[in-house]
Amino acid sequence: MSTQDSSYAPKSPDLSSFYSSATSDIPQDHNVPGGYSFQAGIGAGPGPHQYSTYQSSVPSSVPSSVPPPTSAPAYGSNDSNNTAFSTYPPQSTTGQQGQYFPPRQQTQFVQTNQSPYILQPPPNHSTSYYSSYPESASPAAYHQLQAQLQPQPSRPQTSQPPAASNQFNPSDPQNNMPPRKIAPAAKQNEIEPSPVKTKFPTARIKRIMQADEEVGKVAQQTPIAVGKALELFMVQLVRKSAEVAREKNSKRITAPMLKQAIGSANEWDFLQDIVAKVGEEKEGGKSSGRTKPESDSDEEGETGEVKKKGRGGRKKKAPA
């Protein structure tokens, strides 16, 4: 902040010289304080009142008068963003002297350009402002004045709205995530509250686990962990099959739809042999013209057999 003040000091004479040269009929003593307090407002920083007027007036003026794009972002980042503003002052002390001068000169320049518009009628107005308000209020009055002036030149180059939309863009890909495989990946970071309140019976899970003779002792926590995993698995499976049903404009989720849902994910390959039996039967009876599930069943035959060989032991025991 202190660097700012020192940087302003040499600047302010320029200001006065500008005004005096451009419009001689304007009383200098009134305008220079205006320029000063304007800068002081920035230096003093976080006055929310100053901000709102500042935002509306100044950033819009900058792109219009400043062709080089490098200075415009610097200016915008320093002043236009409320959130950025609080974080920026520490950084600005290093880079400010370079970044700040161009905008300052531009605003002055704009003003001199427009002096024919307003500076002749409003001075009376503004003098009353300054006389009635304490010094702290003068920046706001100054900005209001600027807000009146500057909308016209700023229109053609509206660079501010795109900048705002740029901030929203990163969030867009997160919002559009229809593919199923992306959704679970997002779950990894934060545990999504389960839609299911009912829990699977732990004892039953343990019994199913131990139906496999190879499975010996099971820790107390284990069936609970398996139950939770099963719950998540079921949620995914049901949601996927609901998706399939919606695609088919069906209100009823049928076994073939479940089968199709299972065909959509590689992790669910282990279900193919189960679905192969049941799905085809139901399908043959209920609907004739579905080609996709049948083509799936061809693959199922192979993968199913492979899986059976791989995990030979448990398949036989289950139905006993």
């Binding site: 199913i208 686990m209 496999d212 099971v218 398996v226 099963l230 282990f270 189960i274 289950a318």
Partner: peptide, 9 residues
């Protein structure tokens, strides 16, 4: 059930 069996094995 198949899922439980798979995971436990």
């Amino acid at each position: 059930v198949e899922f439980i069996t798979l995971v436990s094995s």
